[in-house]
Amino acid sequence: MGINFRKETFRDDFTFRNSPENIRRFPFPYHEDAYMYSVNIEPHVPGPKNSVFEHLVDVDEHYVSEMQDRAMVLAEDPLRCQSLPHMTLAGWDLLELLMTEKAASYPEHFSLTREGDRWHWINRPLGIDDTFTFGDVSTLPYGPMEYITRQSQGDFAILDQRDNNLWMDAGMITTQADWSLDFDIGMNFFEWHAPVPLAHEMGVFTRALKYLTNIQQGKPARRLNWTMTINPRLDTSPENFHKWGGDRLTVTPENVGQKVHLRVELQSFWRLPRSNALVFPIRCYLLKMDELVTVPKWARRFHRVLRDLPVELAEYKGLTRYRQTTVEWLSKHDDGAPTSPGFSPD
């Protein structure tokens, strides 16, 4: 049975919502009733059926609409997709990875046929049927990274590895939380994370870099990160902050359930075979507060996490303006009962 792709928007009238089945598979990011930074990286291996980890590259009901939103962002601002000249080979690596994973996991939607360097790619949900020569940029309508990431949910950063560091040398970044590819491209791991508060002092990035530079081909890793977004807006870029920042003032006790979203990033890390680069897909999942409280354990826990979050973190994540209103709304869904350990809905 195939996925029933929703027709919806992430801007203007904001018709995005999750089906009840999709709510149950949301990657809820708190394993206990409190949150603090940690490296929290684990092997990216296939998980339970009907979870976002079922397949290593997850495709869900929002796929087609997310790709339409990405195309709109790129038409407005092509600088969201950039690749330094030495990164083309890594782009081909990424194209291969995403095509093979998608075709293997979702054969009803995607298929890939290879005869030597002649590749035939069919993407049925987006109506794409292309034949091209692997490694020959002139046979695709875009560079290889742009071509395949216009067909893949989530942002993608491709990191070159040299001098015992990782360098942000290519990316497709249209659904970011407060960072600019155009500004950060060419930076090393410590430089592009420089603005993050607290974590440097805790040694988080030093440990994370050590882990990431040791990732082996065929053994990807993953972690979850989170923030919150007002309205189901994918393009929360700093580029457009002056256009969407005002949304944060529109939260009232009456509209929390529909306006306030928990935004979870499933970040995964993969070694690419030819270029030895790392690709870092950052997949964004949105969940409305109304949807979140349909799972009682998540309602209790998220209330406690948000209420007790350190001020610096709330400030960095941009939650200050609507945090109190949201905590009060959530408190009505928290009866104080203990929660079970782990992420699952119960």
Binding site: F183, F241, H242, W244, G245, G246, R248, L249, R321
Partner: peptide, 9 residues
């Protein structure tokens, strides 16, 4: 980097 300081209000 310069980022709009009063984007929210």
């Amino acid at each position: 980097q310069g980022v709009c300081i009063n984007a929210e209000d």
